[in-house]
Design a binder for these strands. Structure first.
Lengths: 269, 269
DNA sequence: GAGTGGTCTAGACCACCTC
DNA sequence: AGGTGGTCTAGACCACTCC
């Protein structure tokens, strides 16, 4: 019976690895610094590369790391807040709005949006694509669905698509009285087409914000926005919240007390 | 020459698999139904189990599947909306509130929260744990941090911890005039302690909602809530949004047009 | 071309649940 | 005991970036 704590459930290796790496990130690395490559890290910790990658994936999910194929793994800057309630109850496309309008076409919306609009499936609407830039990088894409009951089919002022057409739809939309907005946020994974725009691989986690614009007692438009989950923190309301803030983990991280033995240094040794 | 579309970038197998499975889920399976096990599915699609698992992970992330060790993989019900702005500008702990109060103690808050409160690191506050139940299952855990400037150290009415003490803190808090709330939402991964409460493995994705309660011109309390990202859709405002809604993917899924050949049936053959 | 991360394989063992 | 998903390994090849 000389054995000690055999009843402790073994923590998965990748989980333990994650916390070790996380601490090393705090203490040994600056934002933007590049980590040793995966094969080297795996060897240094004595695990298979797949296991090491499982830990890195977690840290990337939490916004601590950024990995780019052909380049390497770097320490990510803290997430920046992006205000989701722009212009306080304003229509999209108004002056102070952080989005830039892209192409527009006439399509049948996805089933979920049709339901929100109270449409039969297949009924065509204006769909306007927009992109949101912050610090020179795209952080979100959006498709705005505007039913013909809000903005009638345009008098073919533009050839059929293009940003000018999108702006025209938004201009017409702004003539309505906006009574309110309702939003939902959920987790999703980026589709192939948005992936390129957001500079992520397909399947990367995103926060999907669905906004219903209410006017004349009904849903006058629906916006579906796709935010990069790794780099963004969504803010609601005119938050005066300062910059450092959250760590991305489950709530703000514990202060760096009572952590592990494993004294592996990562930087040049 | 005779070659066709050699320039098409090969879609990753797991990505293609995901869409095939997703379609099969739509057409062949009912909510709650159990899928064939991973080894069988992998064999049926002619891929390694690890590859199949990559596809299943995606689908679980999008809330389409639910996997439980020792049991199997089942088709998940659509995400349900949980209102994040409860009681319209009310303090936590008021009557209609969906949370049940848990233990409370006196601790130093994590660094991020200390910053929001304008505290030096290490300054102790009340921290009240709460749990949110929906449909009999826990969907979120929360820690509410209440500085002594809002609610002074309690007169040791309770032994030091326990739900009664937590309720006492909330009761005192409600005496203040609430001027506003500010929220942020970001992606995180569940820590070991919350994992058990939420019935998830450590590292599962969660939506972390940070709420600043404003009173007397300052931040009178900070709540950090951790919602299961697989089963929840956060709603803001008194949303009348109906139930079916989003698919969890990047915006509502395309209607099931123009999809793949690969006619693998999944159900009993 | 050299080096990086991304994908994929075929196997093994483990923790957990149910019967 | 038998079956499930969860972890881990040691390799291979590919796509991408940069020099």
């Amino acid at each position: 019976m000389g054995t000690t704590q055999l009843d402790t459930v073994p923590e998965p290796k990748y989980w333990h690895l994650k916390t070790v790496l996380s601490d090393a990130l705090d203490s040994e690395f600056a934002v933007g610094e590049i980590l040793p490559n995966e094969r080297e890290l795996a060897a240094r910790f004595g695990v298979a590369r797949a296991t090491l990658r499982q830990a890195l994936e977690q840290l990337e999910l939490e916004g601590r790391l950024q990995r780019r194929r052909g380049v390497g793994t770097t320490v990510a800057p803290p997430r920046f807040g992006v205000d989701v309630v722009q212009g306080e109850q304003g229509w999209p496309g108004t002056p102070d709005d952080a989005w830039q309008t892209g192409e527009s076409e006439e399509t049948a919306p996805p089933a979920g949006v049709a339901a929100l609009l109270g449409h039969e499936q297949g009924e065509p609407v204006h769909s306007v694509r927009r992109t949101r830039m912050t610090h020179g990088q795209p952080v979100a894409t959006e498709v705005l669905y505007v039913p013909h009951s809000s903005v009638p089919a345009l008098p073919a002022a533009e050839p059929g698509a293009g940003a000018a057409r999108g702006r025209a739809v938004l201009r017409e939309l702004q003539r309505l009285d906006l009574e309110g907005q309702e939003r939902t946020v959920e987790l999703g994974s980026v589709r192939a087409d948005d992936a390129r725009q957001l500079d992520r691989l397909p399947g990367a986690p995103v926060l999907v914000v669905t906004t219903c614009y209410i006017a004349q007692g009904t849903t006058a438009a629906v916006g579906v926005s796709t935010y990069r989950a790794d780099t963004c923190r969504l803010t609601f309301g005119d938050s005066k919240v300062p910059e450092p803030l959250m760590t991305g983990a489950d709530g703000p991280a514990e202060p760096a007390h009572r952590r592990h033995r494993a004294g592996a240094r990562l930087s040049r040794r």
